[in-house]
Every structure is written in structure tokens, then in C-alpha cells.
């Protein structure tokens, strides 16, 4: 148990180390999401008046578009240098490799949000430093990284994956998108925890179902 935790930590640490040297993934997620938020804020004329659900929709659609690009990037780095094969040859069980990659991606998305959210807060005049909003973000990030890592590992060998990955990823994360958009707009309107919790339940159920499924199926995913 302790050894597995150390291995998971080491795989995530390896990804983070590569990331802090070339800054590929975090820059692509935060840069892309910021540009989409800017474009939406012009398109919907946010400065004058806006509804809370529009703001939540803009935030979460840009984060989900950007995160799939980032997750894809993090697997491209492995693919370009054939390092995933080295990882698979190491005497580590496959679910631990999956968990390590997933935690790495979770950290990438979370760090990118630290860049994205202040810009969002300035444009939409919204306080991001509330406990509810941080919970909402962390739950959604877990979901995005669970399903993103799963699909990215499935499609390593697929041609035209840049097009296909978003096509599969975006419809599958609809439950998380619905839940996060609605939770964000309820937080805007300063609603109680009881109302928020219904939406958090969906995200928690989604995260658990797909995390357990991914661990269960990980031997099949990475089988050569």
C-alpha cells in the first residue's frame, strides 16, 4: 500500500518535473481558456449586464475545451519520446500508472485554473474566494482529469486524435458541465449548501463511477 502510494507520487512528480521545465501543458490550458473567456465576454457583451448562468457557462465551457487540449498534450510528450512504453515495462501495475497520470493531469488543470479564475473574476465581477466555489472547481477538476486521462490513454495509437479526442470527451463530460455550470450560477446567486449539494452529488457520482471503472479496466487499456 505504502509502496503503491510512493509510486503514484513518483509518476505524478515525473510529469510535474517535465512540466516545470518546458511549461507546455499549463501554458496551453491557461492560455487557451483565457482566450476563449475573452472572446465570449466580447460576444455576449458581459460588461454591461449578464445573467449568472451565462457566466458559469462561459467559465466551464472554456475550461473543458482547454483541459482536453492540455491532457492531450501531456500524452503527446510521452508518445513523442516513446517513454510510455518504458513506463509500461517497469514492474508497476497498470492502475498505478493510470492514477499517477491522472493526478498529474489534475494538478495541471488546478494550476491552470489559478491563472484563469482571477481573469474570470475581473471580467465578470465575481468573488472566486469562497469555499463553495473552490469545492465546485476541485470536484470538476477531478472529473475532467479522470475521464480525460482515460480517453487520452485509449487514443494514444489513434490517427487524427486531436480531432477525435474532443469529439468523444465533450459529450461524455456533459453531466459534469451541467452540474458545474448550475452550481456556479447558484453560487453567484448566493444560494444555500442544500441546493448546491444536489449538483455536487452528480459530479461526485460521475467521478466515483469513472474512477472505479478506469482502475478496473486499466489492464486492458495499456495492454500492448
Amino acid at each position: 500500500m505504502k509502496n503503491s502510494l510512493i509510486t503514484i507520487f513518483n509518476i505524478a512528480k515525473k510529469d510535474l518535473l517535465i512540466e516545470f521545465r518546458n511549461k507546455d501543458v499549463i501554458l496551453s490550458i491557461s492560455g487557451f481558456a483565457t482566450i476563449i473567456i475573452f472572446i465570449f465576454s466580447f460576444a455576449f457583451d458581459v460588461g454591461s449586464s449578464f445573467s449568472s448562468s451565462t457566466a458559469g457557462g462561459i467559465l466551464w465551457s472554456s475550461i473543458s475545451f482547454a483541459s482536453i487540449i492540455g491532457i492531450n498534450r501531456s500524452f503527446m510528450i510521452e508518445n513523442e519520446n516513446n517513454t510510455l512504453e518504458g513506463l509500461l515495462m517497469a514492474p508497476i501495475s497498470r492502475d498505478i500508472i493510470y492514477l499517477g497520470k491522472m493526478i498529474g493531469n489534475f494538478i495541471f488543470i488546478t494550476i491552470s485554473e489559478i491563472v484563469i479564475l482571477p481573469i474570470f473574476a475581473i471580467l465578470f465581477n465575481f468573488s472566486i474566494l469562497s469555499f463553495e466555489f473552490i469545492t465546485c472547481c476541485l470536484l470538476a477538476n477531478i472529473g475532467l482529469s479522470v475521464i480525460g486521462t482515460l480517453f487520452a490513454s485509449l487514443s494514444i495509437k489513434v490517427r487524427a486524435r486531436e480531432v477525435l479526442l474532443p469529439m468523444l470527451f465533450l459529450p461524455c463530460i456533459i453531466p459534469i458541465l451541467f452540474a458545474s455550470i448550475e452550481a456556479t450560477s447558484l453560487i453567484f446567486e448566493q444560494k444555500s449548501w442544500g441546493e448546491l449539494f444536489t449538483w455536487f452529488q452528480i459530479t461526485i457520482a460521475f467521478n466515483l463511477i469513472f474512477l472505479i471503472f478506469s482502475l478496473f479496466i486499466s489492464n486492458t487499456i495499456y495492454d500492448e
Binding site: L154, V158, I174, P175, F178, I202, F206, T220, D223
Partner: peptide, 24 residues
Amino acid sequence: RIAAIIAIIGALDTPLIYFAANLW
């Protein structure tokens, strides 16, 4: 194998989508 996994993911996702869309 990969195709089979994607099909199962789609099926697992359906109740969640329905539940979320219903609340929505």
C-alpha cells in the same frame, strides 16, 4: 478492445446524463 471500452463508457454515462439533464 479500445472500441469496446468506449462503448461501455457511453453506456455508463447515460444514466448520469439523464439524471443531470432532468435536474437541469
